[in-house]
Simulated scan of single mutants.
Amino acid sequence: MSEQSSWQVQRQLLHYLSDGQFYSGSWLGEQLSLSRTAIANHMQQLQQLGLDIFSVKGKGYRLASPLQLLDSSVIQQWQSDESAPVEVLSITDSTNLQLMQRLQQGEILPKGLALVAEAQTAGRGRHGRAWYSPFAASLSFSMVWQLEQGIQAAMGLSLVIGVAVAELLEHDYQLPVALKWPNDIYLQGKKLAGVLIELSGQSDGRCQLVIGIGINVQLSAAQAEQSIDQPWIDLTTVLGPLDRNRLVAGLQASCAKHLQRFEQSGFAAFQAAFNRRQLFLQQPVRLTQGQQVVRGICHGVDAQGNLVIESQGKKQLFHGGELSLRAEN
């Protein structure tokens, strides 16, 4: 069986299991014209993607909790008429990587086109770190954008996207999120989401952007503890079950709205919005760059998106690079 047809079978199995009820292997086999052994093999493959599937003798299989699959037709129902398309993948290496490869191959992608996936096998965060994204437990979202002013005009862009995510979660879900410079979204002092922006183009010419956002939706604590090395939280913990298709449409719309404003006004228009949500504002912090460590008080960001830290009576500015910001305990 080819990889594509194998996935088609597994998606159909998930369609049956999505209500969280038990289904016997023999009944599932009858629906798909497969043996019980084949059904068991497919279930094992789904478990390897991070799905929590119970197998009980005499009852069959069921998911630990009901599951909603991403669906481009459902997402479209939540979109406005002028929204760019949203493409849905089941499993991919990285949604950012997929869009970057398409751009590098010369494909012309609509401004604002978004790509989402149920699971990533090689999701990435800053500094090349892995981003944990098991099947249907997180939202792996990437969007294409273009800046006519070139790469230099993109300074502060990850902060703008952080504001876009924060305002969506505040307005649509009433969540009091915080932003950690330069690309993390926090809730209740724990990491909820991250942003990764990749650029392709000339410093003074048209620049192609791929904006990646990963949001924890419903992680399994047992599996997450093996893969995440910091305190984390997910949306389902605080909201209960939510519609990921609606979340995708809202995320695309919020990012497009904020990017359009960024093109017109630059980061200065977002400075106050970011600082208002700054996780460590007016608190002692430690900024690490390689072997260099700067300790001081965080004063938020300036009008260009530079991090401002007061250390030994002087305010210093920091931007980009391999920087890590932490609270100073």
Score class of each variant (00 low, 15 high):
Ser5Thr: 13
Ser6Gly: 10
Trp7Val: 04
Arg11Gln: 13
His15Met: 09
His15Ser: 15
Tyr16Arg: 07
Phe22Val: 04
Gln31Asp: 06
Arg36Gly: 05
Thr37Met: 15
Ile39His: 01
Met43Leu: 13
Leu51Arg: 05
Phe54Ile: 12
Val56Leu: 12
Lys57Leu: 09
Gly58Glu: 07
Arg62Asn: 09
Ala64Thr: 07
Ala64Ser: 15
Leu67Ser: 04
Ser73Ile: 06
Val74Thr: 13
Gln77Pro: 06
Trp78Ile: 08
Gln79Leu: 14
Val88Thr: 11
Leu89Lys: 08
Ile91Gly: 00
Asn96Pro: 06
Gln98Asp: 15
Arg102His: 13
Leu103Ser: 09
Leu103Gly: 09
Leu103Glu: 09
Gln104Glu: 14
Gln105Tyr: 08
Leu115Ala: 10
Val116Asp: 05
Ala117Val: 07
Ala117Gly: 11
Gly125Asn: 08
Arg126Tyr: 05
His127Glu: 12
Tyr132Gln: 04
Phe141Asn: 01
Trp145Asn: 03
Glu148Leu: 14
Ile151Asn: 03
Ala153Trp: 11
Met155Cys: 04
Leu157Trp: 01
Ile161Met: 00
Ala164Gln: 01
Tyr173Arg: 02
Pro176Trp: 05
Val177Glu: 00
Pro182Phe: 03
Gln188Asp: 15
Lys190Gly: 08
Lys190Arg: 15
Lys191Met: 09
Ile197Cys: 06
Leu199Ser: 13
Gly201Glu: 08
Gln202Trp: 15
Asp204Ile: 13
Asp204Pro: 03
Gln208Thr: 12
Gln208Gly: 12
Val210Glu: 01
Ile211Asn: 02
Ile211Cys: 00
Gly214Ala: 06
Ile215Glu: 00
Ile215Gly: 03
Asn216Leu: 01
Gln218Asn: 11
Gln223Phe: 05
Leu239Ser: 07
Leu239Val: 04
Pro241Val: 13
Arg244Glu: 05
Arg246Ser: 10
Lys257Asp: 11
Lys257Tyr: 15
His258Arg: 05
Leu259Phe: 09
Gln264Leu: 07
Phe267Gln: 02
Phe274Glu: 00
Asn275Lys: 08
Arg276Pro: 01
Leu281Lys: 09
Pro284Cys: 13
Leu287His: 01
Gly290Tyr: 12
Gln291Asp: 10
Gln291Gly: 08
Val294Gln: 06
Val294His: 06
Cys298Val: 04
Ala303Glu: 14
Asn306His: 12
Leu307Asp: 01
Leu307Cys: 04
Gln312Cys: 11
Lys315Gln: 13
Arg326Pro: 02
Glu328Leu: 07
Asn329Pro: 10
